[in-house]
């Protein structure tokens, strides 16, 4: 059974927000759109976005890590947001595991958003229906698009390729391998939601220099007469010992 998902590599995400606005842009005029904004030119502008990039600081100066953390719907394998929906507007597709909202059925009761521990759903302020990441379902199956572009908008936009897309149930897929190879993990495992989206942790490359690498026989200083060899005439053991 297929479970499509995003795998997000925190090791390379620089927090550029490309995924945020490309998602908005694709979806606002797409099958999930429009994604409305309130007070777009006034006080406290706000709007529906399927994807946010947040920033966290871990540790204390000078051992601080700044972590950019993109988050959209995780397409949980056991999505708590689906069974609570009274209308059936929230559903999980059997064929690929994408969790979707049927905007024509949704009554805007917000109950599914309460049931999502991840804050991944947003009520559209104009249509008053629940919205969320569709995993770009209207792109990934679009046969008019070249194969390479049948991917979510955010994935294609991401300059660092921090967003991988694929079937996590297929052990051969790029996403499954990335999860395996890099200790990919799910968010809030304590609730048994089994998010399909995974995150890859920071990986640190460190350097080790051995003392003996600093002094080498071919040190260029020697060429220029520094680090000179002692004159042969200087006293040495040869002058006083014979074995």
């Amino acid at each position: 059974m297929t479970q499509l998902a995003l795998v997000i590599d925190l090791n390379v995400c620089v927090g550029c927000h490309a995924c945020v606005t490309s998602c908005k842009e694709w979806n606002t005029s797409g099958s999930a759109g429009p994604l409305a904004d309130t007070m777009p030119y006034g006080k406290d502008p706000s709007g529906a976005f399927f994807n946010r990039v947040q920033t966290f600081e871990v540790g204390e100066f000078p051992d601080t890590q700044t972590v950019h953390f993109p988050k959209s719907c995780l397409h949980c394998e056991d999505p708590p947001c689906v069974p609570v929906c009274p209308t059936g507007a929230s559903y999980k597709r059997k064929e690929d595991g994408i969790v979707l909202v049927d905007y024509d059925k949704c009554i805007g009761c917000k109950y599914c958003s309460w049931a999502c521990p991840y804050g991944a759903r947003e009520l559209d302020p104009v249509r008053k229906v629940m919205t969320k990441c569709t995993l770009c379902v209207d792109r990934i199956y679009d046969r008019t698009r070249p194969e390479a572009e049948r991917k979510p908008a955010c994935v294609l936009a991401c300059p660092t390729s921090a967003r991988l897309f694929g079937d996590i149930h297929d052990p051969q897929s790029q996403v499954s391998q990335a999860i395996r190879d890099n200790a990919g993990y799910a968010l809030m495992p304590e609730w048994g939601t089994h998010p399909a989206n995974h995150y890859l942790p920071r990986r640190r490359t460190s350097a080790r220099i051995h003392e003996d690498e600093l002094t080498r026989a071919d040190n260029p200083l020697k060429v220029d007469g520094l680090l000179p060899r002692p004159p042969k005439s200087d006293p040495s053991l040869d002058d006083v010992m014979s074995w």
């Binding site: 606002t28 005029s29 759109g33 429009p34 904004d37 777009p40 030119y41 709007g47 249509r127």
Partner: peptide
């Protein structure tokens, strides 16, 4: 003009 609500949808 600056609307209070913006729901951009190309070719709407």
């Amino acid at each position: 003009s600056t609307p209070r609500l913006l729901a951009y949808f190309a070719r709407r």
